[in-house]
């Protein structure tokens, strides 16, 4: 799985690279429009993370270039400028997703994974982890081949934790992903605990479960 990061902020780029390399992706990176344009023209990638505010050019031009070359890369626009116009134009130009800065590393990975999965670059249709099997297409889950029923939020929490199974997911990252952007001003994220509690009960017979990391968040516990 090859990913290209086009981002002019070097530290931002380092963070993204570290996160994705941890997930065993092959990551290439550039901070300049021209170099990006060259790389896109010569190589092909599975997913491109594109910052549109580059100092020597507009990232949206790279999108147009990809389209003109008939390339089929998954593209996620990463932007500090959370503007509706940019979002719409980017999506119209064929971008798969739009991720406004700042974002959580877990969220970045989830979005990349989702793009890859949507484009079927990921191969398997079902995700198997321990004795749990998930079919993302119809959002069904089995434990030891037995169906279990999760509500929307429980499913989203589980999927998010599975996607980020190697990392610690902070409460705010989880809340923003599952409950949406608008929940963000709630006085604390403690309310997610009740859903976690229900999810844990339903995962009683599974070889995976949700582990709380004191004061920070949650991670997937794999036996």
């Amino acid at each position: 799985m090859k990913i290209l990061i086009i981002e002019d902020e070097r530290e931002m780029l380092n963070n993204m690279r570290e996160t994705l390399e941890r997930e065993k992706y092959i990551v290439e990176a550039t901070t300049h429009f021209k170099e990006a344009s060259l790389k896109i023209g010569v190589y092909s990638y599975d997913c491109i993370l594109l910052d549109i505010g580059l100092p020597d050019g507009n990232g949206l031009e790279l999108l147009k270039q990809l389209k003109a070359q008939g390339k089929n890369e998954g593209v996620i626009i990463v932007s500090a400028k959370d503007s509706l116009d940019d979002r719409l134009e980017g999506l119209n130009l064929g971008a798969d997703d739009y991720l406004p800065k700042p974002f959580h590393m877990a969220e970045l990975h989830a979005r990349v994974k989702a793009v890859l999965r949507r484009r079927n670059f990921d191969g398997n249709k079902t995700i198997d982890i321990g004795n749990v099997s998930i079919n993302p297409e119809n959002r069904s889950i089995t434990i030891n081949q037995k169906d279990i029923v999760l509500n929307r939020k429980e499913y989203d929490i589980l999927m998010y934790l599975i996607t980020n199974k190697t990392r610690l997911v902070t409460k705010s990252a989880l809340a923003e992903h599952v409950w949406g952007d608008y929940i963000d001003q709630a006085d604390s994220f403690d309310f997610i605990y009740s859903q976690i509690k229900n999810l844990r009960k339903k995962l009683n017979h599974a070889t995976i479960n949700v582990e709380a990391v004191y004061g920070v968040g949650y991670k997937l516990d794999i036996e």
Partner: peptide, 30 residues
Amino acid sequence: QTPLAITINKLELFLENTPLNDKQLKDIGT
């Protein structure tokens, strides 16, 4: 936005990369 993003992400990566005790975890969490 960008400096905020960098700082948050650095701390997240630090949390994941470093074995920490509860007190340290809580501080980073705060």
